[in-house]
Design a protein around this nucleic acid. Sequence first.
DNA 1: CATCGAGTTGCAAGCGCTTGCGTTAATTCT
DNA 2: AGAATTAACGCAAGCGCTTGCAACTCGATG
Lengths: 319, 319
Amino acid sequence: MELGYFVSPAASRLATGKTKTVGIVVPVLAKWFFGKVIGEAAQALRQAGFDVLLFELSTPGQRSRFFASKHLSGRTDGILMIALQPSATELEALAGQGQAVALIGAFAPGLGSVSVDDVSAGRDAVRYLLNLGHERIAFIGILEKESTNLGGIPPKRRLAGYREALAEAGMPDRPTLKVFEENSVAGGASAMTRLLAAGRAPTAAFVVSDEMAFGALMVLRQAGLDIPGDFSVLGFDNHELAEVVGLTTMDHDVAQQGREGAAILLEAMGGSVPAIRTIPTRLVIRETTAPPHYLRHRPPETMETEITPDTPAGREGTQ
Amino acid sequence: MELGYFVSPAASRLATGKTKTVGIVVPVLAKWFFGKVIGEAAQALRQAGFDVLLFELSTPGQRSRFFASKHLSGRTDGILMIALQPSATELEALAGQGQAVALIGAFAPGLGSVSVDDVSAGRDAVRYLLNLGHERIAFIGILEKESTNLGGIPPKRRLAGYREALAEAGMPDRPTLKVFEENSVAGGASAMTRLLAAGRAPTAAFVVSDEMAFGALMVLRQAGLDIPGDFSVLGFDNHELAEVVGLTTMDHDVAQQGREGAAILLEAMGGSVPAIRTIPTRLVIRETTAPPHYLRHRPPETMETEITPDTPAGREGTQ
DNA sequence: CATCGAGTTGCAAGCGCTTGCGTTAATTCT
DNA sequence: AGAATTAACGCAAGCGCTTGCAACTCGATG
């Protein structure tokens, strides 16, 4: 019974009610982040003897259908939701089908989850730009279209971090410096376009995703601006290609999030108390950030090459 | 029986022997291409009433384990293999478990498959560089490490296309201009480094994947070379970020490959004769290609902006 | 040596569905 | 309207496993 596993899963499911299968739910697949985290989580889950079913909820229709029909019972024992903030009724629907649930990049009362410490990451990112001497720092965030469910909580928390850093430094939080667009290269491009078209342009931008930052960089280059001389860009994710572009970015261990998410789901299915874990972030300085050109003659006051926030990975009581 | 679908899948599987589930098998997940094609295929499969199980075979161990144990029977009705060239014994193992099989980006006798017309795509790409006036055109391909199963057939066929174009033009096929590395940004970077370090450097390179092309571009820029003035780079895939970098590349409809792969698997599970389809490619000219600098004063002989090969999508008798 | 307890083994019930067959109701033709 | 054909319906068997219980074996103890 232990080695050959020639048992018929169907029969054993019927008899036990356990499917030995989990569902991984993502808003999109064709993004580096999701591939990475799914891959890592799936491997851990598979190692624990679970099959993994994939669900992509890229439209509101798919999302509501997924939660509406109770097709999960008998199909999966648990659900790992990635970058999707479930509503109370959605959570109920899942619970009603006897599903254990774990979240990556989201929170829910009573559920286990992993996420990065977005507010401190946002704060650190903006602090760094402030230390460089920037005074007009833009924030490029993710637009919450109802037709998409990307975004969710993390970008909001990064915005909170942005505000904190500004407040700390006694800088005003100007509404005109905050723009929100779809989370994609194109979205980042149009956000930067809007920023440049507005009255007084900023000298730096904190962009909540590297993909958007790529788009932003593209329009800056097309506009003939020198990076980082005329404009600094700081991204988020440490995307696989951030290095190619030389993008300064906020790194967080994506693979670890996948692994921890899997572990937490496993615990939840085992009936353990749900853990809430936080992944640390780390600023990776590359070539898209520098003091603003009007300060170029003297070196910035601080010039660390790497900042690791003092929030270690571990259990936290947040939420 | 049609609407509510409150049936217990386990019981129905037991009774019918059909699982209404298919497996999608990929060598890696954390790549744009795979996310895209899986997403599209999964959606089509799901629409047809199938659940999709995900299998990532990123190591030779995982691969052999996957084919060795007969854990598929009773789990899936069919397998969609993406960018994985199955061996004869692997195919037997699958057939022995009653699995229908469809391939994306690979071929096998008697099996349905979709793939791009790699040889004509490679030929077109290199023809374009030749038309631009390049005389030393490098080929950056994928190294077949036994520890990875990426690559496979398509890159080999692209190389064949490269050779054909060179032969047509009466140009020699110099071994020193062909380098092979791992399919990644880093691999592309080291390939280009080797090319620049060698005796007489080429003036252009045809790179079999955009990711490698990104790496190649990175070292060219670091080397202080002007692109496309000093060096032209032509990629493959039309990666989501190719536009950001301005990379000239060979585009092929990735989503369509996913859809067609799903359709073919569905047909195969329905007992139809397996179809072998080919996806057309299309050269997308951007800013990384130009005539070599020593020809800059006069315009190139031909300067199309887009070449659509005359091989339409459709059934073919190849293989 | 007999008895009791612990450990082992085998058996049958049942998980919830599908499927074919026998039965009954509905429908059509003469 | 009666018989024959067809459609609808319900019933029981069985898919291959798990699991609890009964029967049994073995070892240890009084």
